[in-house]
Simulated scan of single mutants.
Amino acid sequence: MNILQALFFPPEQPGGVSSMVPYIQDRFKAMGWQTELFSLPKRIRGKGQEELPFVTFDVGPYKGNATVDKYLQTLMDYLWWTRLRITKSYDLIHAHHPIAALVMKRVFPDTPVLLTIHSSYERELMLNGKIAEGGLEHQFLTGLYGELEQLTDGILTVSASFRDYMAPYLKAPGNVKVIPNGFDEKRFRPVSHENPIPQLITVCRLVPAKGLDVLLRACALLKQRGKPFVLHMIGDGPIRKELEALAVELDLYDDIIFYGYMLHPEEFMPFFDIFVLPSRAEAFGSVFAEAALCWLALVGTNVGGIAEQIDHEENGLLVPPDDPEALCEALDKLVSDPIYRYNMARAAWNKAKQVYSLQRVIVQLQRVYESFRPA
């Protein structure tokens, strides 16, 4: 089969789907399948003029809203770039973003278009304080789920919890297949080490949705208990200055290292002890599987795909979101007991190897792709 993997972000972007799909491409190429990647370069902004029609709702009442207009312009830009750059046909198009799926079905109406929805843009905007639940932008963005269900030939997502999240906006949510993200084990090499002081690490974009303010408050409580640690924060984002100010306010600045953006954090993670990220929502949370493959003990919130990766007190610890005291208690358990920490990390590594290996995901995707094979 000749398959196009249609991304939104260019494949060189770090994290999540953008870094995962090239590995999928390589595996299918090794099996003799023709697979290509396509994405919208960052420089393409404001080029498109051709509007896409919507079939399940009237987009007219939403125009004039800044968030909606930006989304519609991005759709037109992606359409312009697709018409300009793609001159051949494919047996199947696997889109990894709603914009890519809507455009590809417009350009290739007779080609099966499969969509994996990896995350929720509207939920991210709400948690980051950009839009209100039930507002105009929220109505438009959630309305897209029905549009995608109507136009695409199949929908996948990365966790059962995210399928449940989408269910109210779909006519047949039971048709959505769950295939979690997969990771090439060769990228992750656990390193034997003994840190005299427990080393905590978090890797994410610095935005409110990740709950990093909660993490700092939990660390302040941990410090008050007299427990030594160092917290390493890898990532950048709009609230970095706020987090640095909060660290100073909580008397934590000497206990935290802010690294900023890092292209390949998985090369850095194996030298630490505990991965912690108290997200307020996650469709999957790829970084938890990556940390597990680096043999780190895991602490996360009982939300979305995190709760599907972590079995509480078996391969990590789960805490409620927005609860610094509970997060402090979980960190205290791991910081205080190296043997317990080691056992959690080993169990996390075992589960990640078994459930989130790239080969397992390739097998699942191959079955789905085969169902679209031309007669």
Score class of each variant (00 low, 15 high):
Glu242Thr: 11
Glu242Lys: 14
Leu243Arg: 01
Ala245Lys: 11
Ala247Arg: 08
Val248Met: 15
Val248Glu: 15
Glu249Asn: 11
Glu249Ile: 03
Glu249Cys: 07
Asp251Thr: 15
Leu252Ala: 14
Leu252Lys: 06
Tyr253Lys: 14
Asp255Asn: 11
Ile256Pro: 13
Ile256Lys: 14
Ile257Cys: 13
Ile257Lys: 12
Ile257Glu: 13
Phe258Cys: 15
Phe258Asn: 12
Tyr259Thr: 06
Tyr259Cys: 04
Gly260Ala: 06
Gly260Pro: 10
Tyr261Lys: 15
Tyr261Val: 13
His264Pro: 10
His264Asp: 11
His264Met: 07
Phe272Met: 12
Asp273Trp: 02
Leu277Asn: 09
Pro278Leu: 06
Ser279Phe: 00
Ser279Leu: 00
Arg280Tyr: 04
Ala281Glu: 03
Val287Glu: 02
Val287Arg: 08
Val287Ser: 07
Phe288His: 08
Phe288Ala: 07
Glu290Val: 00
Ala291Leu: 07
Ala291His: 08
Ala291Thr: 05
Cys294Tyr: 06
Leu296Arg: 05
Leu296His: 03
Leu296Gly: 09
Ala297His: 10
Leu298Thr: 01
Leu298His: 05
Val299Arg: 02
Gly300Leu: 02
Gly300Tyr: 00
Thr301Met: 04
Thr301Trp: 12
Asn302Tyr: 05
Val303Gly: 01
Val303Phe: 03
Ala307Lys: 02
Ile310Val: 14
Asp311Arg: 12
Asp311Phe: 10
His312Cys: 09
Glu313Gln: 11
Glu314His: 15
Asn315Asp: 11
Gly316Ala: 09
Leu318Ala: 00
Pro320Trp: 05
Pro321Val: 14
Asp323Met: 11
Glu325Ile: 11
Ala326Ile: 09
Leu327Asp: 06
Leu327Met: 07
Glu329Cys: 12
Leu334Phe: 04
Pro338Trp: 04
Arg341Leu: 00
Arg341Lys: 07
Tyr342Asp: 08
Asn343Leu: 13
Ala345Asp: 02
Arg346Leu: 01
Trp349Asn: 02
Asn350Ala: 15
Ala352Ile: 06
Lys353Cys: 08
Gln354Leu: 09
Tyr356Thr: 06
Ser357Asn: 03
Leu358Cys: 02
